Structures are given as C-alpha cells and as structure tokens.
Simulated scan of single mutants.
Amino acid sequence: MATPQLTAAVVDDDELICRASKRLLNSFGIRADTFNSVEALLETLSSASSPLPGCLIIDFEMPGIDGLELQRRLVPTGVPIIFVTATDDDAVRGKALARGAIGFLHKPFDSDLLMRTVWIALGLPQASEAL
C-alpha cells in the first residue's frame, strides 16, 4: 500500500513567510503549496481536480478575506487549520480555537512547535526524533 501524500497549504500575504514555511515543510517530506491570499486558495480549491490539503497554515490578518472567515468557510471540509499570525488578540485566538483550529502560533514562529502542530493536524505520530 502506498504512503499517502502529506500536503499542506500555506496562506500568507508575506512572501518570506510562505517561502520559509514551504522550505521547512518540504524538509520534513510534506508537500506545501503557498498562496498570497485567501481568494487565491479558494480559487484553487474550487477546481474539481484540486484535492484538499492535509492541513492549512494560515495568517489571520490578510487583505480581503481574513483567516477567521476562511476557517468559517472551510469548517465543513474538515481540513485542520493552524493559524500563524502576528495578531496578539485573545478574542481572535479564542474564536479560532473555539471553531476547531489545531493551533494558534505567533510570528515569528518556532519551527519545532510549528512542525509538531502540523504532525498533529495531519494525524501522524509526532516526529520528535526528527526535530
């Protein structure tokens, strides 16, 4: 039986965050697609040939549709969501977690913590030996 493809989508309007996250995820064997807006992600997901990612890593504060609205729209899909944001608002954090977010990490994020959270989101044993 083939091993399922481990995938994540990173949604952040900061290109440096997208590149760093993709590099980190790839180094652990997780294919990462990056998007600079929620609209770009939604457009890709609306394609019938585009499978849902194993998890989403999203910024809260984005131009246009913000992270909480994206989370609201994607709740029915069951895709695990991890917020990585500079927002330090307890109300936003509370809403995200109450709606089922797997994590709410602050920028600059700790790579080890992000990877542990991604492993949980993907439903895999934590690769603590690899961290």
Score class of each variant (00 low, 15 high):
59 D>A: 00
24 L>A: 14
30 I>T: 08
80 P>F: 06
12 D>S: 14
45 L>R: 01
19 R>L: 14
16 L>G: 02
105 L>N: 11
9 A>W: 02
126 Q>L: 03
77 T>M: 11
76 P>D: 01
41 L>E: 12
55 C>F: 02
65 I>D: 04
104 F>K: 10
3 T>Q: 11
44 T>G: 04
65 I>K: 01
9 A>K: 05
11 V>H: 06
41 L>P: 07
34 T>H: 09
51 P>L: 02
113 L>V: 15
129 E>M: 12
2 A>W: 07
10 V>G: 06
38 V>A: 13
119 W>T: 13
90 D>S: 02
66 D>W: 02
83 F>R: 00
58 I>Q: 01
7 T>L: 05
67 G>E: 09
38 V>G: 05
1 M>K: 11
81 I>N: 09
77 T>N: 07
87 T>W: 02
46 S>E: 12
92 V>H: 07
57 I>R: 01
19 R>C: 10
57 I>P: 09
77 T>A: 00
129 E>C: 08
106 H>P: 03
36 N>F: 10
102 I>V: 15
21 S>G: 15
28 F>E: 09
15 E>N: 10
44 T>I: 04
52 L>V: 08
99 R>K: 11
86 A>L: 03
84 V>P: 10
71 Q>N: 12
21 S>K: 04
11 V>N: 03
36 N>L: 08
48 A>K: 14
35 F>G: 00
79 V>T: 06
90 D>Q: 10
117 T>D: 13
33 D>I: 01
131 L>P: 09
60 F>V: 05
43 E>Y: 11
76 P>W: 02
42 L>I: 07
8 A>L: 08
96 A>G: 13
51 P>S: 07
79 V>E: 10
95 K>E: 08
90 D>T: 07
